[in-house]
């Protein structure tokens, strides 16, 4: 019935656009089927191992960070040196960082998506800012892609090795929502 409805209203003009929505559906069904079958077969879980460098050149595996944190909350904030709202958000978080840590401890990692055009600016930039939290460099957007982040700023909260919250964009004052969320989890 749905098919007829779609055909009637959606495929009126061109066949090609009609093909699009059916293909989309097919793909989704296929992935759901794949997921359900794999779910029965396997039993362990971890994020895809993505290796990033810290600003001091140390290699960090994101999957390990997520797995070893267990029920401690991990906040991943995607940003870039050219992203004005990202910087406003991180500045405001940095201002109250110690105070909020005292209420409920959490891990906070700023993941810079600056590519090789601007990545060399990251280390002096954060020194100039005096940010207290760790910053990792995602120079070819590997982690950004693995976690399906489309735009920055984008915040992800991970608990017990699962993503429990995501937020995109930033408006002044929204960091309070984030801290409330951390407290409630």
């Amino acid at each position: 019935m749905v098919k007829t409805l779609i055909k009637k209203y959606y495929c009126k003009n061109t066949l090609f656009r009609c093909k699009y929505i059916f293909m989309l559906k097919k793909t989704l069904y296929a992935s759901i089927a794949l997921l359900l079958t794999t779910n029965v077969v396997f039993a362990q879980e971890s994020f895809a191992p993505v290796k990033l460098k810290s600003v001091s050149g140390k290699t960090v595996n994101f999957a390990d960070v997520a797995a070893t944190s267990k029920d401690t909350i991990v906040v991943i904030s995607f940003w870039a040196t050219w992203c004005i709202p990202c910087i406003a958000e991180l500045d405001n978080i940095s201002d109250v960082y110690k105070e909020k840590q005292a209420i409920k401890p959490f891990k906070f990692i700023g993941v810079s998506i600056d590519d090789s055009r601007t990545s060399q600016r990251v280390k002096p930039f954060i020194a100039g800012k005096g940010w207290q939290f760790d910053v990792l460099l995602d120079i070819n957007s590997e982690l950004k892609r693995a976690l399906n982040v489309t735009d920055v700023p984008h915040v992800i909260i991970i608990k017990n090795n699962k993503i429990v919250y995501r937020h995109t964009g930033y408006i002044a004052g929204e960091e309070d929502n984030l801290f409330e969320k951390i407290k409630s989890l």
């Binding site: 794999t38 396997f42 994020f47 895809a48």
Partner: peptide, 19 residues
């Protein structure tokens, strides 16, 4: 875009539509 990771395996697709 859809990506799935299970243990050591991951797979994904990206569908693009220009209309």
């Amino acid at each position: 875009k859809l990506d799935y990771t299970y243990g050591k395996f991951s797979a994904g697709i990206q569908y693009e539509s220009y209309l």
